[in-house]
Design a protein around this nucleic acid. Structure first.
Lengths: 199, 199
DNA sequence: CCTTTATTGGAATGCTCGCTCTAGAATACC
DNA sequence: GGTATTCTAGAGCGAGCATTCCAATAAAGG
């Protein structure tokens, strides 16, 4: 090694994420990122190589954070475990509002032109799904006795989509979704019990 | 009047919407819109004046379509009416998938820099909310006996957010959300009954 | 120290894109 | 059929942006 880094990765990634969340890709120009983070464009390019690649790193960090928490939070078994998973989505929005907004608003396909990414990064993006896909299958099997696509999808909806739907308005406004925790639980329970194979 | 239009508004708006849905604002360059619709940039500017204004027209057309259907579909009263509203969101996704994707993906704030719009268009955008806000208040009053913000919000979640959350995957994949209709009804019912003032 | 290497810093470059401009074509009205 | 008006058509302009480049700087190893 040699000279120490003056601008940390996190500062640059935070700035990029915040700009993305506020004004979309159009607002996250290299100039704006440089101004907000303090890192000159030269340094940013030295480290990330391209704007698309930088976006990919932001995306990876956010999704990784979400997933790590999700896997850690889903203890127990059966319905209890499912509810824990759904609740984590709310918890994540509370703890990391900016990251949650990124997940909620940004369409990965609109952020990243995958063709422009180095194979390594592209691989990291595809590998991202594996552990969560496994969790989904697990939950589906526990609850319905099968991990058939339709059941897996139901679990995905219950664990991710419905909680985010409920939390969405709060993220936009910047208020806390805390009071909606029980609403999420109620809804998820109803969703699953309507199709549960056995209680 | 004088010379007839060669390129219809709908063709231009469709092209713009499709590009927005596929690749976000970055992909909807005037050049791309021109190429996809067949209308030269000169004609586009003659008609809309600016790219932001064109985006606003796309947005207005989509939201208007959604709302017109919503208001028409919400007949009956009480829970029945609420379920009809929620179901329309699914129906809309079936009938107008591209419009639904726009509503789902695009953040109005990221699409439109309101400051750049002519007062007339800006007014049209703000006026857009009124009829639906009224419907929401109506439903909240019918169901909970009050249209207090928290109840109105619950209705919004039940009518719009949850249905879209459930439909999201289908919109991305291009498959039909038809089989999930009952799932939406079940979820919405659970959501509301957990807080209903009286049955 | 002196070399090597990683990083900084920001000026310079080249290109894309929104928008303007102007010439011409089609229609309406007299 | 002349004139006014609206629209088409696309070439061209200028700004802003992603990216490159390179001189300067700091640390590590010998």
């Amino acid at each position: 090694m040699s000279r120490r880094r003056v601008h940390s990765d996190d500062v640059i990634l935070d700035a990029t994420r915040d700009l993305l969340v506020r004004g979309g890709p159009d607002a996250a120009t290299t100039g704006a990122i440089s101004a907000l983070s303090g890192a000159p464009t030269g340094s940013i390019y030295h480290r990330y190589g391209s704007r698309t690649r930088l976006f990919a790193e932001v995306w990876l960090r956010t999704v990784t954070r979400f997933q790590a928490g999700l896997l850690a939070a889903t203890t127990g078994s059966g319905l209890e475990r499912l509810l824990a998973a759904a609740d984590w989505t709310v918890e994540f929005a509370v703890r990391h509002p900016a990251d949650a907004r990124l997940l909620l608003q940004a369409d990965r396909a609109q952020l990243l032109v995958e063709a422009e990414l180095p194979p390594e990064t592209r691989r990291a993006l595809t590998d991202l799904n594996a552990p969560v896909a496994e969790l989904i299958r697990d939950l589906a099997t526990e609850l319905f006795g099968t991990a058939a696509p339709e059941h897996a999808e139901l679990v995905s909806i219950a664990v991710v989509d419905v909680p985010y739907a409920i939390v969405r308005r709060h993220l936009r406004r910047g208020t806390s979704p805390e009071p909606h925790r029980d609403l999420v639980a109620t809804t998820v329970r109803a969703l699953v019990e309507s199709r549960a194979v056995r209680p």
